[in-house]
Design a protein around this nucleic acid. Structure first.
Lengths: 249, 249
DNA sequence: TGCGTTTCTCAGGGAATTCACAGGTTCGGG
DNA sequence: CCCGAACCTGTGAATTCCCTGAGAAACGCA
């Protein structure tokens, strides 16, 4: 089930209308805090744990719809936690967090069931998108919830990664795609450069803040080129996307 | 009976519309977990057992439509379990899991009745495909459910393993076939290299992730050669298959 | 056992993408 | 109207990601 808030944001809900529940397990407190903030912002209910024991405890009485699990935990390794979680919550999908170089050996096979993973350092948009995908596909939320974002005549398909405006296909790079997705998931809302940087770029990005300007410029070239512009600058505040004035929204 | 989910995936259902039920019997917990997750993802209802006694118990009150049975169990050997299963569930098809070096004739004898087997280590695509075949053939699900996948002018027959594009026959190796089947069972959806590796290669594969690139390259040579391409790369995300632009979908 | 086929590793080349930098442009307050 | 701040964008370099040829190893079958 989905509802659309007055601000135009679409939220995932469980079939009974209650908010989706997510358990976050990571031993670095900065990470659990970062994730908790971001996921709460999605309208989800979040519980966090810093080790395997706490994770099991919380899993039992919180009964989450999805779990975010770091594979490197202090007391037991991620695989043991996973095994126990599976016994306790057999149907709950897991999003693994792994170091970039650990991917090959340990994760292989784990994502097979429909689970998924992201590598550290991740971007919040990535985590949120993957989680939404997991929850959608495993039916914790209504399956009819769409994977297509629409703003005016602009369409973005999260499954096929296809973007089109007025029917014409548009090719975007990975970063452009993530940025546009973020904008489109918050239509008519001003997003500051800091917000964008925090959500779309990895949490350890140390570069210049003007990458955002650069990528907005890239997007405009591809999305707005010659057409009624949909991406707008609010000087001193940020950017927003909304249907073109002439387009029937 | 089949339904098609919004994601475009086709699900097997029982004639009364309820999900197919599968019992998984293996003493290695990692295997039952792997299989349970993968088969649940197919939309099936799964129950697992770790030994013969548990299997019998579960068979009685779960009443599965199919059974996945490891031939090496701790308390009794697979044959005894099989015998008892047969008495309890005479018409239910069984998919045997066997070690590679197991006596082929014995298995061949067992599968004469319409059962089937796969050797460990298996790929999930293989298990799922065999299981689908068994369930389809024994009529637990509607018989009209198709064994032919079609994407644009590309056709793949899961029974005969024949592949053709625009009427022209194409010879594929076993791995190429499995990869193409996985792509075609998820048309218009980006599949990451990790997902592909986890589904199409055996669970114990420890090699380089670029085998996927290699086999995509092989497939393109055979499927797309000279024609409008159907296999597309989403740089930084994965691969997807979709009807050629000029083809009526 | 021997031969053709299939699977997979390795490594080079090439192209797409990301990002820094810097000069130009626009905007809004005074 | 002027000035500084904020924003835009061309250029180019570094990097990452992907493709594919060549050959070794494993497999299957006669």
């Amino acid at each position: 089930m989905t509802t659309t808030s007055p601000q135009g944001r679409t939220e995932l809900l469980r079939p009974d209308g209650s908010p989706v529940r997510v358990l976050v397990v990571d031993d670095e407190q900065s990470i659990t805090e970062l994730l908790s903030m971001a996921l709460r912002y999605e309208g989800w209910q979040i519980r966090a744990a810093g080790d395997g024991a706490g994770a099991m405890q919380t899993a039992r009485d919180f009964r989450p719809d999805a779990v975010v699990l770091d594979m490197m935990l202090p007391d037991m390794d991620g695989l043991s936690v996973l095994g126990r979680l599976r016994r306790e919550l057999p149907d709950v999908p897991v999003l693994f967090l792994t170091a970039k170089d650990a991917v090959e050996d340990r994760i292989a096979g784990l994502t097979a069931g429909g689970d998924d993973y992201v590598t550290k350092p991740f971007s919040l948009e990535e985590v949120v998108a993957r989680l939404r995908g997991l929850i959608r596909r495993t039916g914790a939320a209504d399956r009819r919830s769409e994977s297509v974002l629409v703003v005016g005549d602009l369409m973005l398909d999260e499954d096929s990664h296809e973007v089109s405006r007025g029917g014409a296909n548009i090719h975007l790079t990975a970063t452009e795609f993530e940025l546009l997705r973020f904008l489109m998931r918050n239509p008519r809302r001003v997003l500051s450069k800091a917000q964008i940087l925090d959500r779309v770029w990895s949490y350890d990005f140390g570069g210049q803040a003007n990458v955002v300007e650069l990528y907005i410029s890239y997007l405009r070239r591809k999305i707005d080129a010659g057409r009624e512009p949909m991406i707008h600058t609010r000087r001193g505040a940020g950017y927003l996307i909304k249907p073109a004035a002439t387009t029937v929204s």
